[in-house]
Amino acid sequence: MTTIPLFHVLILSSLLFLIGFVGVVARKNTLFMLMSLEVMLNAVGVAFIGAGSVWQQADGQVMFVLILTLAAAEVAVGLALLIRMQNKYRSLDIDLLNQMKG
């Protein structure tokens, strides 16, 4: 019985997405980048759910479930790499990883 306009849902989604994007681009701490990435994934989820509810299709939620699994796998690998990085560099500064100098 809800009448939340899709427009507003998508605005929320893009706002969240862009906040996450800013975080990924602007932060140097890899952990924060990963968190911002979660925000971005979440925003995509919002868009899917919103669209799914507007068109009365379950596909939106299905896609959200898939995003969820993706996020889980991503976090597992990402955190493992983070730990590796911490062990090797004693820092999470992503800029330390640019050893490929062009």
């Binding site: 009448t3 939340i4 899709l6 799914g52 509810s53 939620q61």
Partner: peptide
Amino acid sequence: MQQSLQANVI
């Protein structure tokens, strides 16, 4: 896209 549709629980 912003026509509001009635959202039923899925």
